Simulated scan of single mutants.
Amino acid sequence: MAGGREPDEHARFARYRRDFDEATEEDAPALVARVLADPDRAMASSAVRAYLDRRAAALLTTPGCPSWCAELTGPVAADAFSARRLSEWTLLRAMTLGEPWDPATLLAAHGPAPAPHGRDLPVRPGPDRPGRRRPHPPDPCRRGFPPADRRRLTTDRGRP
């Protein structure tokens, strides 16, 4: 940040967030297309994802959700992450309302699952998502290790 000025992409991101907050349902598809045309693809994708998560969470169980998703399917196709995110919200809606859904779609979901409150849910590690590494086994010579086990590791005279 030179001279105390906010970087251009930060200002554009904030402007896109405001634009999404003020957009009507009719304006949303055109706005999504315009934002995804931004030269900073990562920032644009992030702004669209934030909008999708906010709006989908609000519409999740309402009758207007399927038409909203259908209207945005075309514009989000320009960004693989946004398209996948919209698809995940569609799947979450079907699961929430007890509508039919394909288990293969759930298995194909990539990354954190969308949550109705707008935050991501953690995903369990799988073959393509390494989990946390297991800690090393405890050191028997350290304090706090059971004394009986510590004795087994000593010499035959009972000294370490």
Rank of each mutant, 00 (worst) to 15 (best):
Ala2Val: 13
Ala2Arg: 14
Arg5Ile: 05
Arg5Pro: 02
Glu6Gly: 00
Pro7His: 09
Asp8Glu: 15
Ala11Trp: 07
Ala11Ser: 08
Arg12Tyr: 06
Ala14Pro: 03
Arg15Lys: 05
Arg17Pro: 00
Asp19Trp: 15
Phe20Thr: 03
Asp21Gln: 10
Asp21Gly: 12
Glu22Ile: 01
Glu26Ala: 15
Glu26Ser: 07
Pro29His: 02
Arg41Ser: 13
Ala42Thr: 14
Met43Thr: 15
Ala44Ile: 10
Val48Gln: 00
Ala50Pro: 04
Tyr51Trp: 15
Leu52Gly: 00
Asp53Arg: 01
Arg54Pro: 03
Arg54Ser: 05
Ala56Val: 08
Ala57Met: 07
Leu59Gln: 05
Leu59His: 08
Thr61Ser: 10
Pro63Gly: 10
Pro63Trp: 07
Pro66Phe: 11
Ser67Asn: 12
Cys69Leu: 14
Val76Asn: 02
Ala78Arg: 10
Asp79Lys: 06
Ala80Thr: 12
Phe81Ala: 09
Leu86Asp: 02
Glu88Ala: 14
Arg93Met: 03
Ala94Leu: 06
Met95Tyr: 00
Gly98Pro: 01
Leu106Ala: 10
Pro112Trp: 04
Ala113Arg: 10
Ala115His: 13
Ala115Ser: 14
Pro116Arg: 07
Val123Gln: 10
Val123Lys: 04
Gly126His: 10
Gly126Ala: 12
Arg129Glu: 01
Pro130Met: 09
Arg132Pro: 15
Arg132Ile: 13
His136Trp: 13
His136Leu: 15
Pro137Arg: 15
Pro138Thr: 06
Pro140Trp: 04
Pro140Gln: 01
Phe145Cys: 10
Pro146Glu: 01
Arg151Asp: 03
Arg151Lys: 08
Arg151Val: 14
Leu153Val: 04
Arg157Val: 00
Gly158Phe: 09
Arg159Asn: 07
